[in-house]
Amino acid sequence: MSRGALLVLADGRFPAGGHAHSGGAEAAVGAGRVTGAASLEDFCRGRLHTTGLVAAAVAAAAALGVDPGELDAAADARTPSPALRTAARRLGRQLLRAARVAWPSGELDALAGRFPKGAHQPVVLGVTARAAGLGPADAAYCAAYESVSGPASATVRLLGLDPFDATGVLARLAPEVDAVVSRAVGAARGAVGEGVDALPAASAPLLEVGAEAHAGWAVRLFAT
């Protein structure tokens, strides 16, 4: 694996559309559930062990070469909210565009041909990791970290939260990111032999419900 390539892919400035999404933080702030650094940490911890774990496992499985079509269907089944399914495919399409320029590869071209309107973002992330010479753990790290870094940076904008406090939240969650990645990669290796049903299906109902409500807001800063 190339640690340099991992840094490029994991960079929050990688131009793949993530900046327009809060990962449910805007809905949680609006509902009064996230009000400062402590409640942001709770929110991120919940997201990491549910959505984050699932995304990391799907990404790792894609990096291991599990069929993208099956993984896309598995991600659909694990995403009850139609708004989040639409957003995941849109982000997948945006990531694919950037990835095909950064790491040109036949597999990425084939994915674009098969899913012209986008596959779930973690699926694209895993195939991108393969194209970049990265492994399943790298793909899982990108997905797991993104599941908490997105809400943290969005909350800085939404609440005027002290950016050092928000970064402190991410630093405190780092050991849990390691643990989630380890679980995700184990499940992904299982999926290679047993199929996608071996992938985790942890879900955070309030994230799904909040996303549906948020999609109906007339005034909002973030797309999700």
Binding site: R13, G17, G18, R90, Q94, R97, A154, F222, A223
Partner: peptide, 20 residues
């Protein structure tokens, strides 16, 4: 196009949503 509070990001630094 929804810009996540930063129109300049969506037209300059990360143009993927606009290209779509």
């Amino acid at each position: 196009v929804e810009t996540g509070a930063c129109p300049h990001t969506a037209i300059r630094d990360d143009i993927s949503a606009n290209l779509e």
